[in-house]
Nucleic acid binder design. Structure first.
Length: 798
DNA sequence: GAACTCTGTCATAAG
DNA sequence: TGCTTATGACAGAGT
């Protein structure tokens, strides 16, 4: 069954992705939110909320009618339902509006060695994946992966444009791409420096210049491919695909559309689509569809910044590795869930991120706990874009997306510039580790297999395991993060996950109503039932609902009212503990805390049932043959037997529950002996104390539950604070990097009177209080600088 | 049969 | 002062 479920789930997602590829917009949200619990559960996994709902559904389906009218839960019913709904909202990894967009991925075997050559292939990729995320990552440390919302508060792109105005070359990318030969060594060094800094920021240099990208696109359109080789041709398709998307004019981000992957390939024939289907579904034959393979943009995230290393070209991928596609699709799915959970729980104003939350943003988000997918998401809409990206030749394994070493990003910024070049792809495995969280969620063997997965068809298991384990272990993971020194990134990630499922263990079992209130309701119920009982003239209790019992009671002249055992019977009837199987915290629910149930009346309705030990009473339903009196004697409490033996003319229920005045009147009305009076008073005392003890225990239980909830909340709060702290640190780091970049930019543009650049080893820029920037020889003290500036002063507007 | 839980009861204090 | 309530402690019954 589980296997079928897994298979169905994977197939469903694959099919969704394929539909998106073909051109059919697939809005998963309509399915998820359309009252289809099976589908939702299949995709999202069995949430504990639903599991718990089993218990509450027991009542919810009853809609209150099934609750025992005397139940203590009656007055808590609506409150419990309200809270339960809230808990449900918290618990599930809901995907409010999920779209699966796919970008066609072109395997790019182009080898990029030189700095200049890097830009050419990577520009387009960064266009799709890198730039948006860079901007957005800066804009929002939270990295929520917005839906391509262009309103980035901190626009690196714009900042870079301003930088470009300073630079005489105007644009490094342009120069590096178009006029490499014209570049001086200094320019190249500058480019390299800036590029590295950009990489530190999580973006490639190309991403900062939209005009270049646009120009490049224009160049691509006339198919003026300089190289003209096969890879370039393939890559140009990708460019076209990418360019087909609307681009944000301000940030230069590619705004994802429903079918960004169609682009220039909208003419994909049905036959090709079918071949794609075959290629994507693992159980089909291996597709021979050549170039396009579906890969999530996460591929871009693992791109190594150090393309300058010029690693040898990795071997070509086998034609259309369906397994790899599956893995990457699953990455997207998982990332959606993660991002969704975080977005739901953290509706921070930062939520931004364009759809192509590509490289930097993805990395940043990874550092923040996201798994860094290029996920276009708004608070209500998330697009999982399998963006167009070059598929590295090396195999990538799904679990690698999650890496416990993720936290390293918080210290050392991960350069995630997207590189289509195969030289980078050769490093993917190593860089993959930087964002690999698998160690957290997956068994080591799965993780270890990451580097070896090429075409083994046994991928579904890791996927489903990932989903299940990530949901099941979240709380313990947070504990690990909090108690065992997990990194902040991991802690925040865990916290995010936990937020989505928060309160699972503590919530619904706890009835928030105060014991006193419940007690009051119970008492009122008791009194009402008492009044409903028909008392004989002698004061013996008889119930019109059952003549037999009434007869027995009357014959005995005693006391059938207070039947403690029947409370258990009620418990069994309305709070069957079997309903709470596997929910230890709900076990208390099964206990009888409805201590003031009108036992006698209830017993009168079920006279055939024994009065004690509800379970036994259910089992012994058929034992009617046994005389009722024997049953009564057998199951009656001590006080009941005593009262019966002492011929007390009224029920224990009356003795216990009557107000003092009425109780005294009752005693006065009946002329009782001293022994009888003493027994009656003892019965009253013990009965009241018994209820008090029950209430006390219930209160204790509630207190414990509340304390647990408090601990849980505090842990969540702590994780959230840690996450915020990490985001602040990251933001500060980015600002510093940006500042350094600007410094380098300005400094390298400065020339002395003779047009010579200032050597960085001899001069440095100093900032004055009025905002001006001075270039000063190194070693000159600030005081000296103030007295006699040696060099020219240059104001910079930033 | 030991360990555990649940429940009733007692004693006591406080309101 | 009497009554009620709360609670710790203990013991018996059941699992």
């Amino acid at each position: 069954m589980l296997y079928l479920k897994k298979y169905f789930t994977e197939g469903l997602i694959q099919f969704t992705i394929l539909l998106s590829l073909i051109g059919v917009r697939v809005d998963v949200d309509t399915y998820l939110s359309n009252q289809l619990p099976p589908l939702r559960e299949i995709i999202l996994g069995p949430s504990s909320a639903y599991t718990q709902t089993q218990f509450h559904n027991l009542r919810n389906t009853l809609d209150g009618n099934g609750i025992h009218p005397k139940s203590v839960d009656l007055d808590q019913f609506f409150t419990a339902r309200r809270l339960l709904n809230q808990v449900r909202q918290l618990d599930r990894l809901s995907v409010p509006c999920t779209e699966l967009n796919t970008w066609l991925v072109h395997r790019d075997s182009e080898t990029v060695v030189s700095t200049s050559s890097q830009s050419s292939p990577s520009i387009t990729l960064d266009n799709g994946g890198g730039l948006e995320d860079v901007n957005n990552s800066d804009a929002t440390p939270a990295m929520r992966g917005g839906s391509g919302a262009p309103e980035s508060t901190y626009n690196l792109n714009a900042a870079d444009n301003s930088l470009g105005a300073v630079a005489p070359e105007g644009n490094q990318e342009q120069g590096s791409r178009d006029g490499n030969d014209d570049l001086t060594k200094e320019d190249i060094d500058l480019i390299d420096i800036l590029w590295r800094q950009d990489i530190d920021l999580g973006a490639g240099r190309e991403v900062f210049n939209y005009s270049n990208r646009q120009k490049e696109s224009e160049e691509e359109k006339p198919k003026e491919n300089k190289d003209g080789n096969e890879e370039q041709e393939s890559w140009r398709n990708g460019v076209n695909l990418q360019d087909a998307q609307p681009v944000d004019g301000e940030t230069g981000e590619s705004i994802p559309e429903q079918l960004p992957g169609l682009g220039s390939q909208t003419s994909l024939s049905l036959q090709e689509c079918l071949r794609l289907l075959e290629a994507t579904f693992p159980f089909g034959e291996e597709s021979e569809f050549p170039a396009p393979v579906v890969a999530p943009e996460i591929v871009s995230n693992e791109e190594v910044p150090s393309t300058s290393q010029g690693l040898p070209l990795a071997p070509q991928l086998p034609p259309a590795e369906p397994q790899l596609d599956l893995e990457q699709q699953w990455q997207d799915i998982m990332a959606i869930m993660e991002l969704q959970a975080m977005e739901v729980n953290n509706s921070s104003p930062h939520s931004n991120s364009s759809s192509d939350s590509g490289t930097s943003g993805t990395t940043e988000s990874s550092a923040a706990g996201n798994f860094g997918l290029s996920t276009a998401s708004t608070p209500v809409n998330q697009d999982v874009s399998l963006h167009q990206a070059s598929l590295p030749s090396c195999s990538q394994d799904f679990p690698q997306v999650f890496n416990p070493q993720l936290d390293s990003t918080s210290i050392t910024p991960i350069t995630t510039m997207l590189r289509p070049s195969s030289s980078n792809s050769s490093n993917i495995n190593s860089t993959f580790g930087a964002t690999n969280l698998t160690g957290i969620f997956l068994p080591p063997h799965i993780n270890s297999s990451s580097t070896n997965i090429t075409s083994t068809p046994i991928l579904p298991d890791p996927f489903s395991n990932l989903l299940e384990e990530s949901m099941l272990d979240e709380i313990s993971l947070l504990d690990l993060a909090m108690e065992e020194g997990f990194s902040q990134a991991q802690a925040s990630q865990l916290e995010d996950e936990l937020e989505s499922d928060s309160g699972l263990s503590l919530d619904s079992s706890h009835s928030p109503a105060s014991p006193s209130s419940s007690e009051t309701s119970c008492s009122s119920a008791v009194s009402s039932s008492s009044t409903s009982a028909t008392f004989s003239e002698e004061g013996a209790v008889g119930y019109s609902t059952d003549s037999e019992v009434a007869t027995v009671e009357t014959e005995e002249g005693a006391v059938g009212g207070y039947q403690p055992g029947f409370s258990k019977l009620c418990r069994m009837s309305y709070q069957d503990p079997s309903q709470f199987h596997g929910l230890p915290q709900l076990g208390g629910i099964g206990h009888n805390h409805t201590y003031n149930l009108p036992l006698s009346s209830a017993f009168a309705e079920h006279p055939e049932l024994p009065l004690s030990a509800g379970k036994k009473s259910v089992r012994d339903k058929h034992s009617k043959l046994q005389p009722a009196q024997d049953l009564l004697d057998k199951h009656a409490s001590r006080d009941e037997r005593r009262a019966r033996s002492m011929k007390i003319p009224f029920s224990n229920e009356k003795i216990i529950n009557l107000p003092v005045e009425e109780f005294n009147e009752l005693l006065a009305k009946h002329h009782l002996s001293e022994g009888q009076l003493a027994l009656v008073r003892d019965i009253r005392r013990r009965g009241k104390n018994k209820m008090a003890a029950q209430n006390c225990r219930k209160r204790k239980l509630d207190t414990i539950i509340n304390l647990e909830q408090g601990v849980h909340d505090l842990r969540r709060n702590k994780a959230r604070l840690l996450k915020e702290k990490m985001e602040f640190i990251r933001s500060i780091r980015q600002m510093k990097q940006k500042m350094q970049s600007l410094y380098q930019e300005v400094f390298t543009q400065l020339r002395d009177e003779e047009g010579r650049p200032y050597p960085p080893s001899e001069y440095s820029l100093q900032y004055s209080a009025d905002g001006s920037v001075l270039i000063m020889p190194r070693g000159v003290t600030t005081a000296e600088q103030n007295r006699k500036p040696e060099k020219k002063q240059k104001d910079k507007k930033k």
